[in-house]
Design a protein around this nucleic acid. Structure first.
Lengths: 168, 168
DNA sequence: CTGCAACTGAGACTCAGTCTCAATTAAACT
DNA sequence: AGTTTAATTGAGACTGAGTCTCAGTTGCAG
């Protein structure tokens, strides 16, 4: 049994629990997502589906992604770009991302001590956290070796990049 | 001398250093931004300027914001929504945000230990960080007391919100 | 097998942001 | 003060990501 089957079953359960249907389109999308991608974008997925025999519209792609997010199979993340990215949800759900601004690679990391700090801060501010969002932007090991410069420096900075880095 | 003058001078320096001009429009925008807002959105600013005697176009607002970001006077941040927000840059530049998903309030915090953790992680992954981006979403003290429910739960979650919270 | 609520695709729409281009203007230079 | 000229501006067309509508289609409970 291909591993995708597990996700299909879970999605099916989720849907029927709410009186929704597992259609051909939804099946095809789940297969595509869990068969290949790990991090992906909605538009990229849309494009991939264009190549298949069963054509799927933009609206359906977005609608299905929403359902997958609600079902807990997929997570929607900001990776420092304008639009959202999506990723599979697996057992080790609590991780954040290092994002290479040169090649776009996404590296996951997990750090219990950081979680602890966040807890501590919320306590101090009497804030009840429901979720968080952390990306660290920079240059990955491979690109450091290649000695490349980031492609789009202006896009990259979003918090705390100091003004020194600015070029004309 | 109004405090805004300091920012105007700095902006002037920045501009003339690159052969750019301090126009009436740019002056008006800097006055507006540093006179009132702290966190703001581009469109909100555009709207405010509509009410003034000197009308300023959308294009100019965006162009000026870009310059202000480059000059280091203003920072562009993601606050967990689709579009960008902007904030003044002050001395204590290294902070992150707690964002109340009920009332929209933004609380800043600063935590050196967290910085240290991030450093540690980058070392471990041989990653050279240039910037980072952290928001913690949740419910602020005031809203907890009011016992209100978040307005748009689906918008809110973006990383690590567990599936338990989902409603039909 | 049937009925109907859920689903779909096409394309109009929105929203934030970018781009173009002809007309205007800041400011360096007489 | 007047000239020059590159930078700047506004109007509005455009873009990209995502949402919405509605008439036609389809999964599936009975």
């Amino acid at each position: 049994m291909p591993p995708v089957q597990r996700e299909l079953n879970r999605f099916q359960d989720f849907l029927s629990g709410r009186g929704l249907k597992l259609t051909r389109e939804r099946t095809a999308l789940v297969r595509e997502i869990f068969g290949t991608h790990y991090h992906f974008e909605a538009d990229e997925l849309l494009l991939k589906m264009k190549g298949k025999s069963l054509k799927i519209s933009r609206a359906t792609v977005y609608r299905t992604l929403e359902l997958l997010v609600k079902s807990g199979l997929v997570r929607r993340v900001h990776l420092g770009e304008e639009h959202y990215h999506y990723e599979h949800v697996r057992g080790d759900s609590h991780h954040d991302h290092l994002i290479c601004t040169t090649c776009g690679t996404v590296i996951e990391f997990q750090d219990p001590q950081m979680q602890a700090r966040q807890h501590e801060i919320c306590l101090r501010k009497k804030f009840i956290a429901t979720s968080h969002n952390l990306q660290i932007l920079g240059i990955c090991e491979t690109c450091q070796k290649k000695g490349e410069r980031p492609h789009s420096p202006d896009r990259v900075q979003s918090i705390g990049l100091d003004a020194m880095l600015l070029r004309k």
